[in-house]
Structures are given as C-alpha cells and as structure tokens.
Simulated assay, not measured.
Amino acid sequence: MRIAVVGAGGVGGYFGTRLAEAGNEVTFVARGRHLEAIRANGGLVVRSPLGEFRAPSDRFVPALADVGPADVVLVAVKLWDTEDVAVGLRDLAAAGARVISLQNGVQKDTVLREHLPPRTVWGGVCYISAAIEEPGVIAHRGGMQKLVFGPYDGEDGARAEEFREVCAKAGVDAEVSADIARAVWEKYVFLTGLSGTTSAVRQPIGVVRRDPATRALLRDVMAEAAAVGRASGVHLDESFVEERLAFCDTLPATMTSSMHHDLEQGNRLELPWLSGGVADLGRALGVPTPRNRTVADILAPYVQGRPRVE
C-alpha cells in the first residue's frame, strides 16, 4: 500500500516505520534537525520494547509537494499545523487518498473537512507513548501501540478493513471503528486527563494516580471532558470515566504524555486544544469545567514554550 506520513515525530515516526518495514511504500514528510539527522544517519531509528525498527533515508521528503500518489495519508503533526497540512493535501485527496489524522483533540477533522472532500477524511486515534529521543531517533515507551480509525459516513468499510489488514501484517494493533466519532471523544477524554495532570504535576502517571489528591484531579479532568462530549451529542457511557481511571492503573508507572514531554523540553504546547479546548467548548455549551480551566491557567505561561524571565 502507498502511505504518506505527514510528521515523523513519535507517532508518525513509529507507525510509519513499522508499516515501511512490512514492505509498504511509505513516504515521510519531516523537517528541521530531525530530517537532517535522518539523512546523515541513513534513516530513522525507532527504539522500542518490541524491537528496533528502521526506515531508510530515501523515504523522507521535506514538503508535502514532494509526496507522490498515496492510498492513505496519516497526519501526525502538531495541532497548530493542521490547516496548512489540510491545504497541502488537496491534490492527494482529490486523487482518492483517504486522510486519517492521528492528532490529539476533537477539532482536527473539522479543520480537515473544511479543505478536503468530507468523505476522504476518516476519523482516527492512536494509543502510544513515543517521542523524538534525539534528532533521527524515536523512543517508544511501553508496549502499547494501537490505531483506531474508520469513515464517518459508514461507507468505505472494505477500504478501511484493507488498511487494518496492512497494519496487522506490520505488527501494529489496529481496529476499524463503526462509531469513530465516539472513539475520537473517548481518546480525547483520556488524553485530556493524562496530558493535563502529568503536565501540571510535572510527573509521570504513576505519581499522579498514586496520590489521592492528584488521582481525584485526574478523574475530575476526565469527567468534565466526558460531560462536554455528551453535551456535544456523543454517547459516552456513565461508567466510562471510572473505566478510564482503572485503565490508567494498568499503564506503566513511567508513562507520561507528549504535552508533558514538550513542557520539559521547553517546546510549544497543545494545551489550547486539550484542557483549554475542554474549557472553551464547555463555556460554549454551558458545561462547567473548573478543573480543566485551572489546568489551562496553570500551564498558560508555557503555551508558546519555556517562558523568559524579564
């Protein structure tokens, strides 16, 4: 299968490399020091508890305009780049490519559909802890690595199943969802809790879930996000938050979030689309979100990167 991966960081780098090693024609769009290191070292290296994987440097290009025809496009850039990527994908989508965003948040596909034929945009979420360890190297932490995707309109079922089979042959845990909007919100509820608490506490999930006060914060942040989802018309079971809290207890104690990683590295944060997004959507829908608003306020000075002390 011909696959384009837009963004070769932790998410795109991991899944794209696994798909490339399985014999698929994968083209990565990368940039900056990461791309320079990939070219200098002969490819991208993924270090994982599941093994070490590599994608050759000749599969990496600096711009979407350099990508050839594709059957599937995986979008794995930060949320602030979504609109620019959507504009750059117009030709590929018009030629029949299906676009799956693996980004965080719940607004991503709305942005993509503003620029692309709606039927070409499938919903998608991923479950993985992976990040750029150093330019040219991806570190995958823990054994979790799962993709969930599917068309919003219920069509393209056979095509979605074909991509699932491609993922399975590559050793990637993958699932086609019959209710992808719900799956996206379920991931959003979990991720908002994980990212907001690990970033605000500056500790991995093991510390957050062990202390009674921060465990309550984790639960409340997820409960507010779930309430906003229900007010948006998405069906989320009343037991869902407790189930997610129990799921957090199964995660490796050292697991953290990409936002916590970015915070520690002094990078820009996706906060406006995570806890900030919950707070904004809640205000528009009349749903109280005091815990998410507090997390967003605490982290606000770091949104554009490490703040300067004047």
Rank of each mutant, 00 (worst) to 15 (best):
V234L: 05
S239H: 14
V46Q: 03
E243R: 15
L50E: 14
A170Q: 08
E238H: 12
R47F: 05
H115T: 10
Q103T: 07
A93V: 04
A131V: 14
A170R: 07
S275L: 05
G16V: 12
A93Y: 06
A178V: 13
D173G: 03
F53G: 00
I128G: 02
G9T: 06
G42P: 00
V295N: 09
D58M: 03
E83A: 15
A231D: 03
G13E: 00
Y127N: 07
G233D: 13
G43A: 00
Q107P: 01
R202N: 11
Y188P: 07
L19S: 07
M259R: 09
G229H: 13
W122V: 04
R202G: 06
K108R: 15
L245A: 07
L64W: 03
G51L: 08
V75W: 08
T198A: 05
V99A: 05
D91N: 02
V125D: 02
G51C: 09
T214S: 15
A131Y: 15
G43V: 04
L35P: 05
M222L: 12
G154L: 06
E83I: 06
G88A: 10
T27N: 05
H115L: 03
L271W: 06
A200M: 08
Y14F: 11
M1S: 05
K146Y: 09
G43S: 00
S275D: 08
V228K: 12
L74Y: 08
P135E: 00
E134T: 14
A20L: 10
F240T: 07
R209T: 13
Y188K: 02
V172E: 10
A231S: 08
E165P: 06
F163M: 13
G7M: 11
S177L: 00
G124R: 13
L299F: 09
E133N: 05
A223R: 11
E25S: 11
W273L: 04
T17R: 11
A40R: 15
M259C: 10
C167G: 01
A183Q: 13
Y127I: 03
Y14W: 06
G276D: 08
R2N: 14
T198E: 03
V287W: 08
L271K: 11
